[in-house]
């Protein structure tokens, strides 16, 4: 995530902020637009203008919101995914009380498996247990793939643009899920499982600071073993312009089915107490070192929690 959210009225606006300030002060009371009837325009009297305070006629025919998420589509997805969630992965949560019941929060988790299995588990789990919608911030790449992109966005996927994240958290007060490791998490070799990658450049912390919401770290155990990568081909990845082209254990064990079939690894998810940042929201910029420090701390929190969870794990398959 970059930091250009407040590239501000200065750089590109007409004659700088002085203008827009004046514009924003334009007298609200006298601001009576024109009422148009049969193609001709007449100024409307004040009384009419005030009656416009009532919501405008909005004949929507679907429940797709401005992010592209549809509760109806989620409902179907939840029904289809439920067996995988509770029978196959047998996901179990701890510390769900740390996820806020209202207001925005940025959920941050470790990321793993060649086709990441953790994102749907977290989104499904929180929607099922708490009844709150979760928006998954992910690579733009999804949007450009036909069908997949549409399904992904109906299911709550949002391109991880810093401004999208800010709006979700600040304006919509929603729950947003992000994996700061990006594709470096799922793209790592099996031998490096549960070793967290760099948390980007800390953009997620900056967005949370700006939006004035806490970060809720989640440690996920089980995803690594659901589709481990044994070998990566760099040439093919370059050729297809993909972050990685893996050979997974699933492909070896299950054949063609292994392209999409997960191993039934036991999922345990632990939500850690929310991290609040003691900074004012909506600042032009935040101290780079502070942001990096916070990001590192959160990464370390999840890392240590994972070690603890792994110490207690007796079996990959039974937990």
């Amino acid at each position: 995530m970059s930091t250009d959210r407040r590239e501000s009225d200065s750089s590109s606006d007409l004659r700088r902020s002085r203008l827009s300030e004046r514009g924003e002060r334009a007298d609200r009371a006298s601001a009576v637009p024109a009422r148009v009837a049969d193609g001709t325009v007449v100024p409307i009297e004040r009384g009419r203008a005030e009656s416009l305070e009532t919501p405008l006629y909005d004949p929507r025919m679907s429940d797709v919101d401005h992010w592209g998420r549809s509760e109806h589509a989620r409902e179907i997805a939840r029904r289809l995914y439920e067996p995988l969630y509770s029978q196959w992965f047998r996901a179990e949560w701890e510390g769900l009380e740390h996820v806020p019941r209202e207001g925005g929060a940025l959920l941050v988790a470790n990321h793993a498996a060649a086709i990441p299995s953790d994102a749907p588990v977290i989104m499904h789990g929180i929607e099922k247990e708490l009844g709150r919608a979760v928006y998954g911030l992910a690579d733009y790449l999804f949007v450009s793939i036909p069908v997949v992109g549409t399904l992904w966005s109906r299911g709550g996927g949002v391109p991880a643009h810093p401004d999208n994240a800010y709006r979700l958290l600040h304006d919509d007060q929603a729950l947003a899920l992000v994996f700061p490791e990006g594709s470096k998490g799922p793209g790592k070799h099996y031998s490096e499982r549960y070793k967290l990658r760099r948390f980007g450049r800390g953009g997620f912390v900056e967005t949370a600071m700006r939006a004035g919401v806490p970060v809720v770290p989640i440690a996920v155990m089980g995803a690594e073993e659901s589709m481990p990568i044994l070998y990566k081909n760099r040439t093919l990845a370059k050729l297809f312009n993909l972050p990685y082209v893996p050979l997974t254990a699933n492909m070896l064990a299950l054949g063609p089915l292994g392209l999409v079939g997960y191993f039934p690894a036991k999922f345990r998810l632990r939500v850690l107490p929310p991290v609040h940042f003691d900074v004012p929201p909506d600042q032009e910029r935040y101290s780079r070192s502070r942001v990096m420090e916070e990001a590192d701390d959160i990464r370390e929190l999840i890392q240590q929690e994972l070690y603890k969870m792994l110490q207690q794990r007796r079996s990959v398959w039974f937990g």
Binding site: D9, D13, S20, R22, G23, P33, A34, V36, V41
Partner: peptide, 17 residues
């Protein structure tokens, strides 16, 4: 659209909108 253009003609709203 017409309303917006007339609004700008009748009030001073400098800037990009």
């Amino acid at each position: 659209v017409l309303g917006a253009l007339l609004f700008c003609a009748q009030h001073d709203v400098p800037g990009i909108y």
